[in-house]
Computed example of a mutant assay.
Amino acid sequence: MTGYYAPPGGLPPQTALMTQRAVFTTAYAFIPKGCFSDIVTSCLPGWTRTKLWLIARPMSGFAETFSQYVMEVQPGGGSDAPDPETGAEAWLFFTGGLATLTIDGTGYEMEDGSYAYIPAGSRWTLLAEGTQPARFHWLRKIYEPAPGTPAPEAFVINERDVPVRWMPDTGERWGTTRFVEPEDIRHDAHVNIVTFQPGGVIPFEETHVMEHGLYVLEGKAVYKLNQDWVEVEAGDFMWLRAYCPQACYAAGPGRFRYLLYKDVNRHARLRGPGAFGPAR
């Protein structure tokens, strides 16, 4: 069985302590699940019976490549024109409820664990069905074409049908559910699920140029963000800019899992003479 945390909404009682674990630094942002109240939800043009938590957006000087929404669509709600940016590719990962997703005329039934990749320029719609809200993560990025490389196709799958690929020499304590092969350079970003069994660790400080969004789906751990060890649990979100050091220790008692975004497989954009053609 797989459990996925979804924010319940509402508001804390007036008797609750105000102090939470939220942090925003020059290297990372940490949004604990207690911040996901109804007072910080938003609505979107073209969507009905829908609220969302907008948890990442491109910011100059910080993480600049993607946005991420935590969506809650009531039965009968949805959209026939979900995204006005024709150049945006999308990833959807469902944590609960039922919905029909249509991509370029092909319909798919979405439930908890369902994952969809929607290429830029696709025509897609979504309708929530059933008796409970459809809950899902929606990640967006402007697709960056590469010369001589075809654009990727749409696909829908359930994570239960994708085996975890365990990192070598970890005793199957740290692994990734990969929905796209890492060497498939048609894709300019990866959205995967990372799993740690109790005792699993990232045994070094990952420090690299990729931007990250990490939403904790299940369990708890301590996660190193830049110079800080931060306790994290299901429902928390971590937003890392390029080069922010990170590491993890999952002490248990259960497994620790998060939905991971990172940008990959493209040249770094250059500035200055010659960057946009021959110097004159």
Rank of each mutant, 00 (worst) to 15 (best):
V156D: 14
E211S: 05
A242I: 00
R165I: 10
G277A: 03
V194M: 10
Y258I: 09
T177S: 05
D228S: 13
K262I: 12
G254M: 03
A250I: 03
V194Y: 00
D188S: 03
F256S: 04
W229P: 05
I157M: 08
R173C: 13
L259S: 09
P245Y: 08
L225P: 00
E181K: 14
Y249C: 07
E144C: 08
A221T: 11
H190A: 13
L259P: 04
A154R: 11
E211T: 04
E205I: 00
T177E: 07
P147D: 14
P182E: 06
R257Q: 07
L217N: 10
V216K: 03
E181Y: 09
G213H: 12
P145L: 08
T207D: 01
Q197C: 10
V164S: 03
V201L: 00
L225Y: 01
V180C: 08
R165F: 04
M238E: 05
F155L: 12
Y261W: 14
E218F: 06
G272E: 01
Q246R: 10
I157F: 01
L270K: 11
P147E: 13
N226T: 09
E181S: 11
M238N: 07
E172K: 15
F179G: 03
R173T: 15
R173Q: 15
K224D: 00
V264H: 09
V216G: 02
A189V: 02
H267D: 15
A154C: 14
V194N: 03
G171N: 07
K220C: 14
V191T: 10
F204P: 01
R241C: 08
T195H: 09
G277R: 02
N192A: 06
I193S: 00
V232Y: 02
L260R: 13
N158K: 09
P168L: 00
E206I: 08
Y261E: 10
F155W: 11
A242K: 11
V222E: 15
F276V: 08
H190W: 01
N265F: 05
V194W: 02
D161E: 13
N265H: 12
V222T: 15
P145S: 00
C244A: 11
E144L: 11
A268V: 14
W166Q: 03
E144Y: 05
P150Q: 10
V216Q: 09
P182L: 09
V164C: 11
V162L: 06
A247Q: 12
M167R: 09
A234E: 04
N265T: 09
